[in-house]
């Protein structure tokens, strides 16, 4: 019993630290969202948020980003992960994991060099003779292209995380299973469908949940490429706090983000379990 006490002593700083920084804001966020500055309960902030025009487009675009980017990343990462594990190419793995270290802000700025007016995409199209003068890709008239640019930048940046999780997962699948599948008559496609994917399910699940939760916080990459032309939930929270100085409505947005993340996570878990 005494050495158990010692262990709790070693763990106490960590637990207290996390409790303080992760749980106490949770409570304060509720307080900010539902109580006014004089401490009275109110639904004004909720109503005001919902009545805001930008709220709906923020919600729409955030969800659109999540449902576009994440399936795209999963497929890309899975294909690359299969290739890397079969070939055992560690240097390729290293190159592909470079974007892992790059922030979403930096990724947005990096893709600016591709899509800007005098950027490399325009130069490339021009040199092929496809266009006569540069196209304004990143303008408010081209919302769908702004969207695409953000998708490409985010896909470039965060696929490496999914890849890392899937490669780690694939490496945990014993080589025997691969060989058994082949010997018992499965070809490439059948092996993936009947053996690899089911065995990789825990990893896919982790990747899906981690990526979804972070994708709902997407913000700097959008800001860098699209400014405020494409609203997203985190961006609105940011603007409400730092521009309009309203922590109440910013908190409402924060709560909406966690609500929607939890909802999606729950859906994933349900759907994945039913498949089994």
């Amino acid at each position: 019993m005494r050495s158990d006490e010692k262990i709790y002593l070693l763990l106490a700083p960590l637990v207290l630290y996390i409790l303080f920084f992760f749980l106490s804001p949770f409570g304060s966020a509720f307080k900010l969202a539902f109580f006014n500055d004089s401490g009275k309960f109110t639904l004004d902030y909720i109503v005001k948020t919902i009545k805001d025009v930008r709220f709906y487009s923020a919600l729409k675009y955030t969800v659109l980003f999540v449902v576009t980017i994440i399936p795209l990343q999963l497929v890309t990462a899975f294909v690359i992960a299969l290739y890397i594990t079969r070939r055992g190419s560690s240097w390729l793995m290293f190159i592909v994991s470079i974007p892992l270290a790059i922030s979403d802000l930096a990724a947005g700025l990096i893709f600016l060099s591709v899509f800007s007016e005098s950027g490399f995409l325009n130069s490339f199209l021009y040199s092929l003779g496809l266009i006569k003068r540069p196209i304004y890709f990143l303008s408010y008239q081209n919302t769908w292209f702004l969207f695409l640019a953000v998708v490409l930048a985010e896909h470039w940046r965060a696929t490496s995380i999914v890849l890392l999780i899937l490669v780690a997962g694939l490496q945990m699948i014993e080589k025997d299973f691969h060989e058994a599948a082949r010997i018992f008559g499965a070809g490439f496609i059948k092996e993936i469908y009947f053996v690899t994917l089911p065995l990789l399910k825990p990893s896919i699940q982790s990747a899906l949940i981690i990526r979804t939760i972070f994708a709902f916080q997407m913000f700097a990459v959008v800001l860098a490429l699209a400014g405020d032309m494409i609203p997203v939930l985190s961006g609105e929270a940011f603007f409400w706090y730092s521009l309009y100085r309203n922590p109440h409505i910013a908190s409402v947005y924060a709560l909406i983000i966690i609500l929607i993340s939890v909802f999606f996570t729950f859906v994933y878990l349900r759907v994945m379990r039913q498949e089994l």
């Binding site: 060989e179 058994a180 089911p198």
Partner: peptide, 28 residues
């Protein structure tokens, strides 16, 4: 490739698929 050789095998570590029931493993 193995899938076109019409061979069958018992592995040293068995390699029975953990995500399938015994029935599905045998019928694989």
């Amino acid at each position: 490739p193995p899938q076109r050789r019409n061979v069958s095998m018992v592995f040293q570590n068995y390699a029975i698929f953990p995500h399938m029931s015994v029935r599905d493993n045998i019928g694989f």
